[in-house]
């Protein structure tokens, strides 16, 4: 570009191309900051009147914090359970595809998993209602009868299976493809030499994975989990379709038909008929979700940063 005009100094090796490239890269980084600042500003400006709104100005008839607390609770439960369900499975599947399955099979399986990332939420929702929920009813009844002493399974079990547990499973299935795909790519990038060295030292396949693959892939796995969590926290339509919600519920019970809603699903369910201050309240709940994501990522980043010995560039 025009920066070829920049004067060259003999002593330094900074070249025009370098400047352009560095400029473009920095610019892209800054643009991301700007976008995020834009989103944050939008949420804050539109959300603050919602947080400050009087109970009688909004449809729920509650002031903001009592209104949003059950939603926060539901969001956290749903996302946490989904992540707990999905992470080990995603790592297992990725490991299977990258290191355990026969090469050719692994590729086509990876392909299959990639495809599923594109299935629209509506389809997951329909699958949840029509297939998963009815199949889960006997499981819930069994849990209610035999594990009812654990607060999570206190019951009474839902007759249609449209519980927060079902929603969590749907969410887990939804975030599985993207988590698996990222883990798989990272596992595949483990230096071949490390793996072979481990095997040559007599390590079994698992020991090789533990010694060579996991330390190398740690930060990537956390990234994958964060992406998955992001999607789980923000998923709207599938949760809205699957979950039977009751406003204001806070319960540890995972298998009844009285469930807390999630922030994102609540926005989707209420936004259409909202007007005036109620809209601000919904946007403010979006702001809360934003802050939650912020905090969760902060924690995750702190964990990853403590050990980054193996990554290539740093």
């Amino acid at each position: 570009m025009t920066s070829t005009l920049a004067p060259r100094k003999r002593s330094t090796v900074v070249r025009a191309g370098d400047r352009v490239f560095a400029g473009l890269s920095t610019g892209a980084g800054l643009l991301i900051l700007l976008t995020l600042a834009g989103v944050a500003a939008f949420l804050t400006i539109e959300g603050i009147p919602g947080i400050l709104a009087n109970p009688d100005e909004v449809k729920s008839g509650q002031s903001f914090w009592p209104y949003v607390w059950p939603l926060v609770y539901g969001t956290l439960i749903a996302a946490t359970v989904a992540l707990i369900l999905a992470t080990p499975v995603a790592i297992g599947v990725a490991l299977y595809i990258s290191h355990y399955s026969p090469r050719r099979l692994g590729q086509s399986l990876g392909y299959l998993v990639d495809l599923l990332a594109a299935v629209p939420s509506v389809v997951y929702g329909l699958w949840g209602i029509q297939f998963l929920a009815p199949h889960m009813v006997p499981v819930y009844e069994w849990l209610d009868k035999h594990a009812g002493f654990i607060p999570f399974f206190a019951g009474p079990a839902s007759a249609t299976g449209r519980t927060i547990m079902t929603a969590c499973i749907v969410l887990a299935v939804m975030i599985l493809p993207i988590m698996t795909a990222i883990c798989r790519e990272i596992f595949l990038q483990t230096p071949r030499l490390h793996e072979e060295a481990a095997l040559a030292l007599g390590a079994t396949r698992w020991e090789m994975a533990r010694l060579a693959i996991f330390p190398y892939a740690r930060s990537g796995i956390v990234s994958a989990a964060m992406l998955g969590l992001g999607r789980a926290l923000g998923e709207t339509l599938a949760v809205a379709m699957v979950l039977s919600v009751t406003a204001g519920t806070v319960t540890a019970n995972l298998i009844s038909s009285t469930n807390p809603s999630t922030i994102a699903a609540n926005i989707a369910l209420s936004f259409g008929e909202a007007s005036g201050r109620t809209v601000n309240v919904l946007i403010a709940s979006g702001l809360v979700l934003f802050v939650i994501t912020f905090l969760v990522n902060f924690a995750a980043r702190a964990v990853v940063d403590r050990r980054k010995d193996f990554s290539g560039a740093n």
Binding site: G230, L233, E235, T236, G286, F290
Partner: peptide, 14 residues
């Protein structure tokens, strides 16, 4: 890096 992670959590409707 941190804010990009945060961005992944923006709900699509937002």
């Amino acid at each position: 890096r941190f804010l990009v992670d945060v961005m992944t959590g923006i709900p699509s409707i937002v």
